[in-house]
Design a protein around this nucleic acid. Sequence first.
DNA 1: TATATTTAGTTAGCGCAGCTAATTAAATGG
DNA 2: CCATTTAATTAGCTGCGCTAACTAAATATA
Lengths: 147, 147
Amino acid sequence: MPSKSRSDPKPAEVADRLHSAAIHLLRRLRRVDEASGLSAPKLSALSVVVFAGPIRLGDLAAAEQIRPPSMTRIVQQLESQGVVRREPDPGDGRATRIAATPKGHRLLKQGRGRRVNLLVEWLGGLDTADIHKLEKGLVVLEQLLKK
Amino acid sequence: MPSKSRSDPKPAEVADRLHSAAIHLLRRLRRVDEASGLSAPKLSALSVVVFAGPIRLGDLAAAEQIRPPSMTRIVQQLESQGVVRREPDPGDGRATRIAATPKGHRLLKQGRGRRVNLLVEWLGGLDTADIHKLEKGLVVLEQLLKK
DNA sequence: TATATTTAGTTAGCGCAGCTAATTAAATGG
DNA sequence: CCATTTAATTAGCTGCGCTAACTAAATATA
């Protein structure tokens, strides 16, 4: 069992640091992800489409926690880049379903490769234990974000 | 999909999840922070100014990892809201130094309080062990971002 | 010393991503 | 059959990142 921290972290401090870390992480990843031609929000949306299969626009917006009009624009751009396509919803004439094209699958894979390369570079000086710590913190964060 | 922390997490997966978590965290915090009249980037910059004392614009931009023109605009808005002021750099006529006003200190404190309240709400279902995990992951992340 | 170069910051102008309000078209219900 | 609700889009706003080009001050050099 790994040693516990000596004192309980103050929520105020954790909140601040989490906020700051998220901002700086995204500012960095932005540059890497640019190489794919897809911004962070587009990559994130594409990831959901690839993973969650054909999905309605409204559901995709909800999953990404943005409003439908914002998702409409993102999908339009993804479509014009040929990484997703729209198909009519079989059971509902108002809705469209968003699906990833083969190019979309390929592009996401490549983008992931780039981030991994960067991360591997970053992780250069870290040992396995630190990676585990990072992953465990991530699990907690993901739980928080699900609610 | 989270992996078991038993096995070594794949960097590819960790990279993806970190990316996604950062995006979703910021989208949420954005709404909370709006109440302070300061966006996430402004709060982040103000935090550096409050913490690192009077600081030159270029250094502030570097600390925030954005370009000087972007920081110029942020500082202008912070100034017009009365939370920072500019003073001439004693030793360099080209440079200005950015300092936080009392109002700036106060506002940052209030904003922190709001985020803490939100976090406390989020943390409602979590135990101390989870908070520790989150904090430890954060330490690792912060190390990565320092480089 | 006088001129050239470098450096700090700003201005101008672009693109992307969020939002709300209003619109269109399809589904649903009285 | 018409009224209401729902899915998505369009229009238009704001904020924040960027590069390119400019001004002014500091520094280096002939």
